[in-house]
């Protein structure tokens, strides 16, 4: 099949297993974000796809061909490094032309392609500048142009935007996504920033402890997290333990919640409720009762911290939609079953 396929990929450094039995299909033209906390194995996985590290076992296929042991320089990749790795001894133009020069492309062709790429990244006329004279965002774009110079089969980016400030980063996310859609190139980005992943990806791959916890579209990851790690890692959430009472009804903190489905036969389960789905009511009107402990007014949204039977639940709402509450005031918490996600173990 066309695209990138990882089969039972394992990487061990000594006794430490950095990547554990990873399987993943990336269809041609997909934008994948690998997301996870530091040390989760996402960068190691990317380096194995690039051939910079060899898997301990397992196979990597690209368009049906097994490339597991193909050396990096024969894989026809484009890769953007976290440090960008722009060559300090070469100019902007020479940096972008490097992959063409290595492939001994004719001089005129190199020049034509460099000009093309420079105008694509809005840096036309910068060919002769030293890279040290560029701003952070400009370097970023040069690194991207250089990686795309040969129209690679695979476009890999390792934390590419981490050095930029927040505003520029958001702008580059959009730019990168638009560029990828225009070129239709299979792209894999490693990031620890979930906003970045949500902005750019067709598929978000959430990793932890060297394993893939969930691989799905951004909205599905957010709405239907596979487990409590994913639910907690992507956005903010309330994780609540639910139990079945003697009649088999689901209860939360001892109070029955009508319509909440527990997995068949399970005595208990963890449910995830996004803060924006938690609605505050008058005391006694909701499924649960609690007391307000803290109110954080962020202008655009207001977060209300409610203590329910010793556990904290956070509700987020816009100022208009929120009933007036003050610290110390008793409130009710409404839990509608359709916003409660029952997590698998």
């Amino acid at each position: 099949m066309s695209g990138l396929v990882l089969q039972k990929v394992v990487k061990e450094f000594g006794v430490f297993r950095a990547v554990n039995d990873v399987n993943l299909d990336v269809p041609h033209g997909t934008f994948v974000c690998m997301l996870g906390p530091s040390g989760c194995g996402k960068t190691t996985l990317l380096r194995m796809i690039a051939g910079l590290d060899l898997p301990t076992s397992g196979a990597i296929r690209l368009d049906g061909e097994d490339i597991t042991r193909v050396p990096t320089h024969k894989r026809n990749l484009g890769m953007v490094f976290q440090s960008l790795a722009l060559f300090p001894h070469l100019t902007v133009g020479e940096n972008i032309a490097y992959p063409l020069r290595i492939r001994k492309a004719p001089k005129e062709e190199q020049k034509k392609r460099v000009d093309e790429l420079l105008s694509m990244i809005h840096l036309a006329g910068y060919a002769d500048r030293p890279v040290s004279k560029l701003s952070g965002g400009q370097r970023q774009r040069v690194a991207i142009a250089r990686a795309l110079a040969i129209s690679p089969k695979l476009f890999l980016l390792d934390e590419p935007l981490s050095a930029l400030d927040a505003k520029l980063r958001e702008a580059m996310q959009v730019e990168l996504r638009q560029l990828q859609q225009k070129l239709g190139i299979t792209t894999i980005v490693v990031t620890h920033d979930q906003r970045e992943a949500m902005t750019m990806a067709d598929t978000v791959v959430v990793m932890n402890g060297g394993e893939i916890r969930q691989a799905a579209s951004p909205i599905e990851i957010y709405r239907r997290p596979a487990d409590s790690f994913v639910a907690d890692f992507i956005g903010q959430t309330n994780l609540i333990e639910a139990e079945a009472d003697s009649q088999g009804r689901a209860t939360v903190f001892g109070q029955p919640v009508a319509g909440l489905p527990l997995p068949p036969g399970a005595a208990r389960a963890t449910i995830s409720i996004r803060p924006e789905d938690v609605h505050l009511t008058a005391p006694g009107a909701g499924a649960l009762n609690g007391k307000v402990t803290f109110v954080r007014d962020l202008g655009g949204t207001i977060e209300t911290f409610v203590d329910v039977a010793g556990r904290q639940i956070v509700a987020v709402s816009t100022p208009r939609a929120r009933p007036e509450v003050a610290v110390g005031q008793p409130v009710g918490v409404a839990l509608t079953p359709d916003v409660c996600v029952v997590l698998g173990k």
């Binding site: 690039a50 051939g51 910079l52 050396p71 990096t72 320089h73 024969k74 894989r75 026809n76 990749l77 484009g78 890769m79 490094f81 976290q82 440090s83 790795a85 060559f87 490097y98 992959p99 290595i102 492939r103 250089r146 990686a147 110079a149 040969i150 890999l156």
Partner: peptide, 10 residues
Amino acid sequence: SLVEAAATMG
């Protein structure tokens, strides 16, 4: 990473 970058570029 400069060396690695060069390798990824062929």
